Amino acid sequence: MNTAVMEKPAKVAKNGVDVPTLLATIGAVKDMPAAAKFQFRARGEWVSGTHSRATVNGFFGAGEEQGRAQDFVIEGDHPAVVCGADRAPTPVEYLLSALAACLTAGVGNIASVRQIDLTSVETTVEGDIDMQGILGLNDEVRNGYEGIRATVKIKGDAPVEQLEKVVRQSIARSAVFDMLTNGTVVDVTIDA
């Protein structure tokens, strides 16, 4: 009696994600956990008023120093209503953007590994701040967001339940969501 062995088809690139390389990277890190240790960096400088500029390039990862072909420059400012010149988004808007980008990228990767064709993903993030804290008017009001809400709209060639699982997995694996919900120790050194 011949018993044929059914093999699962190989996973292919999907939604712009190189799934075979992603899975190979996960396997390599599983075999060598030290490769998972990364250090990202940003360098900020004051421009004028509330306008600042941060530069991102170079990081440590996969066991060695890594560089990029170009610097990424991120401008920050405040709107005129809070004494800025409105030259760029506020730092707290970048935080919301970071959460949106992290959740959306996670959805793209996870759906691709599960071989789900996505037709659209839109992540909207809102945060509420009471400016009394930042302005030093009320020490009982925190400086940061009181609450953040995110909505992920997802469409693809899978049943709604599977698409919801993709989003839940993205939330569970999001570094930005983790930092916001679990906190992160931040040490500041002053060099005057």
Results as ranks from 00 to 15, higher is better:
residue 67 G to A: 15
residue 170 S to R: 00
residue 136 G to T: 10
residue 83 C to M: 14
residue 140 E to H: 13
residue 137 L to Q: 15
residue 99 L to P: 02
residue 170 S to M: 06
residue 101 A to Q: 01
residue 106 G to I: 06
residue 101 A to I: 00
residue 62 A to H: 06
residue 137 L to T: 08
residue 106 G to H: 02
residue 112 S to M: 05
residue 174 S to C: 08
residue 60 F to C: 13
residue 147 G to R: 10
residue 123 T to V: 03
residue 172 A to I: 13
residue 94 Y to H: 06
residue 61 G to Y: 02
residue 168 R to V: 14
residue 172 A to Q: 14
residue 58 G to K: 09
residue 112 S to D: 11
residue 104 T to N: 04
residue 153 K to H: 09
residue 59 F to N: 08
residue 173 R to M: 12
residue 76 G to S: 02
residue 68 R to Q: 15
residue 55 T to S: 09
residue 111 A to T: 13
residue 83 C to N: 05
residue 109 N to M: 10
residue 115 Q to R: 07
residue 130 D to M: 04
residue 65 E to D: 11
residue 146 E to W: 04
residue 119 T to R: 15
residue 135 L to N: 12
residue 67 G to V: 11
residue 151 T to S: 03
residue 66 Q to L: 04
residue 154 I to F: 01
residue 156 G to V: 06
residue 97 S to K: 12
residue 90 T to S: 15
residue 60 F to N: 12
residue 82 V to W: 04
residue 67 G to K: 14
residue 91 P to W: 08
residue 60 F to L: 09
residue 160 V to S: 12
residue 80 A to E: 15
residue 111 A to N: 13
residue 127 G to K: 01
residue 108 G to N: 14
residue 89 P to K: 05
residue 131 M to Q: 13
residue 100 A to C: 03
residue 96 L to M: 12
residue 60 F to I: 10
residue 124 T to S: 12
residue 87 R to D: 07
residue 147 G to M: 06
residue 111 A to S: 15
residue 124 T to M: 05
residue 92 V to I: 11
residue 92 V to R: 03
residue 134 I to T: 02
residue 115 Q to N: 10
residue 82 V to N: 07
residue 152 V to S: 00
residue 55 T to L: 07
residue 65 E to A: 15
residue 138 N to L: 08
residue 140 E to V: 03
residue 67 G to N: 11
residue 169 Q to R: 10
residue 113 V to R: 09
residue 109 N to V: 14
residue 141 V to S: 00
residue 133 G to C: 06
residue 55 T to Q: 05
residue 108 G to C: 13
residue 105 A to G: 10
residue 172 A to P: 07
residue 106 G to F: 02
residue 112 S to C: 15
residue 62 A to S: 05
residue 99 L to F: 11
residue 132 Q to N: 09
residue 142 R to A: 13
residue 133 G to W: 06
residue 118 L to S: 00
residue 122 E to T: 01
residue 102 C to I: 14
residue 115 Q to D: 08
residue 110 I to Q: 08
residue 146 E to I: 10
residue 78 H to P: 00
residue 99 L to S: 03
residue 58 G to N: 04
residue 62 A to Y: 11
residue 95 L to H: 05
residue 148 I to Y: 01
residue 98 A to R: 00
residue 98 A to C: 05
residue 106 G to Q: 09
residue 141 V to W: 04
residue 75 E to Y: 09
residue 133 G to K: 03
residue 154 I to Q: 00
residue 102 C to Q: 08
residue 146 E to Q: 11
residue 109 N to I: 10
residue 73 V to T: 15
residue 171 I to H: 04
residue 100 A to M: 08
residue 98 A to D: 03
residue 128 D to I: 08
residue 56 V to P: 01
residue 169 Q to C: 04
residue 111 A to Q: 15
residue 107 V to C: 01
residue 163 L to T: 02
residue 107 V to S: 01
residue 145 Y to L: 02
residue 102 C to S: 07
residue 143 N to G: 09
residue 157 D to C: 10
residue 89 P to H: 05
residue 138 N to G: 11
residue 80 A to K: 12
residue 129 I to K: 02
residue 90 T to D: 14
residue 57 N to T: 14
residue 83 C to H: 15
residue 163 L to Q: 11
residue 57 N to I: 04
residue 118 L to C: 05
residue 138 N to I: 09
residue 149 R to F: 13
residue 122 E to H: 00
residue 69 A to Q: 13
residue 70 Q to V: 14
residue 159 P to C: 05
residue 145 Y to A: 02
residue 117 D to M: 12
residue 153 K to I: 00
residue 105 A to F: 07
residue 141 V to H: 05
residue 166 V to Q: 02
residue 165 K to Y: 08
residue 101 A to D: 04
residue 138 N to D: 14
residue 173 R to V: 07
residue 96 L to K: 06
